[in-house]
Nucleic acid binder design. Structure first.
Length: 602
RNA sequence: GCCCCCGUAGCUCAGUUGGAUAGAGCGACGGUUUCCUAAACCGCAGGUCGCAGGUUCAAUUCCUGCCGGGGGUACCA
C-alpha cells in the first residue's frame, strides 16, 4: 500500500465521516462541496512533527460551517472515520484527533515493506518517472565570457543548471544542457583595443587567460580617465562585426585560449553539456528576426536606433540595433529563442542566468509574445509561455559583489585547489591507508565547493566565505559523502546479499521509521526541485536523510551502548542491511543529481 | 523617481498554496570512541520573525505604508 493510496483512502473515509456526522450541513454544501473526498485530499498537509502522523487534515476550515469547536469536530469525525476504515477490514491506517487535526497513522511495517522493497527492486531507477515523457526541455547554463577567467561568479549558473538538467532527465524529459558562451559583443571591441595598446604576443602565451583579464581590467581603469576609449572600443567591435580580418584573427585567438580553459574547468567540476554554441553562432540569424519583427509592424526607429516599443511603462524598449547599426545581446537572445524553438520545439526553455538580467529577459519574452500575437499563431506554435528565466542571486565576497571589470574576482580553480588540498590533509590524518587518495580528495573538495552553491535557495545572494566553502562539517557536501562512505563500509563488512525473506517488522525503532519515511519522500524531493527549478530542495532533502540515518547508526541502547547495525542476530542484521542498501542507493543517486561524486571510502 | 529581490538565533540559512510549541548548521558551553570511518552523534544556551497597520477562527507566510540592504532602469553583457 503506497503513501498515495493511503491518502486516497483517508480522504474517502474522512469525507464520508463528515457527511455522517453532520448531515444537515452536508445538505447545504452538496456532493462536490467541502465534504467531498477531493477537497479533503487537497487539504492534507505534513505534520510539523513526524510523530504526530504521516499526514494530517486540519479541521479549522470547517468550523464556521459546522458551528462547533475544533476538538469536538476532530474527535467526532475521527471516530466515525475509524469505524468506516475498520469495516473495510484491516487497513493499516488509523486516525487520531489531536488539537484540531486529524492525524493519519500508518502501519509502520506495511510502509517499510512497501518502500524498501521498491528501492531494492528499482535501485538507482527509484524516483524515475515519466512526467516528462515526450517533452523536450532546454537548460541553458554557465555561459561564461570569452577572454575572461572562470570565476566563482560563474559557478552558480553552472552548478544549478547542470543539476537541473540531470533532474529533468530523471523525470523522463528529453533534457538538453546548453552552453552559450559570450563570444561576441562590445567587450571584444574593448579587448581588441586593449590588446593593441598594451598587449603583445607574449600576453597570448603562458598564463594567457590571466593576461587577458589584466588587459580587460586595465581598459576599464583607463577608460574612466579617457572616455574616448569607449568610442574606440565600439568602433573596434563594429569592425569585427564587419569582418575585418585582423580583428577577426585576434578574436579567434581569444576564443581558442578561453575554450581550453573552460573545458579544463568543466572536467574538474564534472559538468557536461549536450550542445555548445557561442553568441557569434547567431550572427547570421539576427537579420531574419529583425525582418520578421518589421513585417509584424513592431519595429520603430528612435534616436537612430532600431527598437520594439513594448507598450509597458515598466519596461524600456527592446533595442535591436544601436544607432551605429551594431546588434546587441538582446538581439542575439531573440534570434536564439527563434532558433531553439525551430530546432527543438521545446516544452520549456530555461535560462539559468543571474537575477540582474531579469529585465533583459522580461523584454525578450515580451517581444516574442508580441510577435506571436501579431502573427496570430495557433497556441501550439507559440513559445512565449515556454521560455523561463531562472534567476539567481549574486555571489558576494566580503559583502560585495565580485566584478570582473574591477578585478575583484576569485578564480574558481584557486578555490578548488585549496579545497582539495585541505581534504587531502584531512584524509592523511584520518585515513592514511586510503588507496585512491588523490581521486578521493578531488571528489570531496569539488563536492564541498559545488554543494556550497546549492545549499541556499537560488534567488538569494550567497556570500562567498572561504571558511564556509572549505568547511566539511555540518550541512555540507562532504557530510553527505561521508555518510555515504560509511554506509558503503557497512556493505563491505557485511559482505553478503540481502535475501528476499527480510522481516521488516524487526526495524522497530523510531529512528529507523523516520529513515524509511524519508526514503519514501525521495520522488517528491526530486519533483519539488523540478517544480521550483531549484536543486536546493533536493540538497536539503539529502541532508535530512543523511542526518536521520546517522541517528540510526549511532543510536544507543538502554545500557548506553551503540546499537550496531551488524550484530549476532542474523535476521535483525539482514533487515537493517536492507535499510542500509536503500539509503546508499538514494544517497548516491541524489548526489549524482546534484552533480557530486559519491566515493565509497574517504 | 519607478520596478524587482532580500530582511527570521551572535553568524549562514530553513520554515512546504495562511495552520499544532518558529527549526537546522556554524560558533559557544558540556558530553559520547576497548573504535560497524568522531568529516559523526547527544545535551544545553540563544529569536519583540525589520517597523506599523489591515484581512482571517488562525499571519513569519497574504495586502498597504514605512525603514534598511542589493539589483535593474534603451544604444554593456
Amino acid at each position: 500500500m503506497s503513501l498515495e493510496q493511503d491518502k486516497d483512502r483517508f480522504a474517502d473515509a474522512v469525507a464520508e465521516a463528515f457527511r455522517q456526522s453532520y448531515p444537515e450541513q452536508f445538505e447545504t454544501v452538496g456532493e462536490t462541496g467541502a465534504f467531498s473526498a477531493g477537497e479533503v485530499r487537497a487539504k492534507l498537509e505534513k505534520p510539523k512533527d513526524a510523530r504526530m502522523g504521516r499526514f494530517a487534515l486540519p479541521v479549522f476550515p470547517y468550523l464556521k460551517l459546522l458551528r462547533a469547536k475544533p476538538d469536538d469536530v476532530a474527535s467526532r469525525v475521527a471516530a466515525a472515520a475509524n469505524s468506516l476504515l475498520e469495516e473495510d477490514g484491516d487497513s493499516g491506517l488509523s486516525i487520531s484527533a489531536d488539537g484540531g487535526y486529524l492525524n493519519a497513522k500508518i502501519d509502520q511495517v506495511a510502509q517499510m515493506r512497501a518502500t524498501l522493497a521498491e528501492i531494492l527492486r528499482k535501485q538507482a531507477a527509484f524516483g524515475n518517472s515519466n512526467d516528462g515523457a515526450g517533452k523536450t526541455i532546454l537548460v541553458e547554463y554557465s555561459a561564461p565570457n570569452i577572454a575572461k577567467p572562470f570565476g566563482v561568479g560563474h559557478l552558480r549558473s553552472t552548478i544549478i543548471g547542470n543539476s537541473l538538467r540531470l533532474i529533468f532527465k530523471k523525470l523522463g524529459y528529453h533534457s538538453v544542457g546548453l552552453n552559450y558562451p559570450g563570444d561576441w559583443g562590445t567587450q571584444f571591441g574593448k579587448m581588441i583595443v586593449a590588446f593593441r595598446k598594451w598587449g603583445s604576443e607574449e600576453s597570448l602565451q603562458g598564463n594567457a587567460v590571466r593576461n587577458l583579464l589584466d588587459l580587460y581590467v586595465r581598459f576599464h581603469k583607463e577608460a574612466e580617465r579617457d572616455a574616448a576609449l569607449e568610442d574606440e572600443a565600439r568602433l573596434a567591435f563594429k569592425n569585427l562585426e564587419d569582418g575585418e580580418p585582423e580583428a577577426t584573427k585576434l578574436w579567434e585567438r581569444f576564443k581558442t585560449i578561453s575554450y581550453a580553459e573552460f573545458d579544463r574547468i568543466y572536467t574538474l567540476l564534472g559538468v557536461e553539456f549536450d550542445v555548445v554554441y557561442g553568441e557569434s553562432f547567431l550572427n547570421d540569424k539576427m537579420n531574419a528576426v529583425i525582418d520578421r519583427l518589421k513585417r509584424d509592424g513592431l519595429v520603430t526607429v528612435s534616436d537612430g536606433a532600431l527598437i520594439v516599443d513594448l507598450k509597458d511603462p515598466q519596461l524600456p524598449p527592446s533595442l535591436l540595433r544601436r544607432s551605429d547599426g551594431a546588434t546587441l545581446y538582446q538581439t542575439r537572445d531573440l534570434a536564439g529563442m527563434v532558433y531553439r524553438w525551430e530546432r527543438w520545439h521545446f516544452h520549456e526553455c530555461l535560462y539559468v542566468v543571474g537575477s540582474s538580467q531579469a529585465d533583459h529577459f522580461k523584454q525578450a519574452l515580451k517581444v516574442i509574445e508580441m510577435m506571436e500575437t501579431a502573427e496570430q499563431l495557433p497556441e501550439a506554435q507559440r513559445m512565449a509561455q515556454r521560455l523561463r528565466h531562472i534567476g539567481f542571486g549574486w555571489v558576494k565576497f566580503g559583502g560585495k559583489a565580485m566584478k570582473t571589470r574591477e578585478g575583484t574576482l576569485i578564480f574558481l580553480e584557486e578555490v578548488i585547489d585549496e579545497a582539495v588540498k585541505l581534504v587531502r590533509e584531512k584524509i592523511e590524518e584520518k585515513n592514511p591507508d586510503l588507496k585512491a587518495i588523490d581521486e578521493t580528495a578531488l571528489m570531496i573538495g569539488v563536492g564541498a565547493v559545488v554543494f556550497s552553491q546549492l545549499s541556499v535557495r537560488r534567488h538569494k545572494d550567497v556570500n562567498f566565505d572561504w571558511d564556509e566553502v572549505l568547511s566539511f562539517e555540518g550541512e555540507t557536501g562532504p557530510y553527505l559523502q561521508y555518510t555515504h562512505a560509511r554506509l558503503c563500509s557497512l556493505l563491505r563488512n557485511y559482505g553478503r546479499e540481502v535475501g528476499a525473506g527480510v522481516d521488516f517488522s524487526l526495524l522497530d525503532h523510531e529512528e529507523e521509521h523516520r529513515v524509511v519515511e524519508l526514503l519514501a519522500d525521495f520522488p517528491d524531493a526530486i519533483r519539488d526541485a523540478a517544480a521550483n527549478y531549484d536543486s536546493y530542495y533536493l540538497a536539503t532533502y539529502l541532508l535530512r536523510l543523511a542526518g536521520a540515518f546517522n541517528k540510526v547508526y549511532q543510536r544507543k541502547d538502554s545500557q548506553g551502548r551503540i546499537d550496531k547495525i551488524i550484530s549476532e542476530n542474523r535476521a535483525l542484521t539482514e533487515a537493517r542491511m536492507a535499510l542500509v542498501i536503500s539509503v546508499v542507493t538514494v544517497l548516491r543517486e541524489g548526489l549524482r543529481l546534484l552533480g557530486l561524486k559519491a566515493p565509497e571510502e574517504m
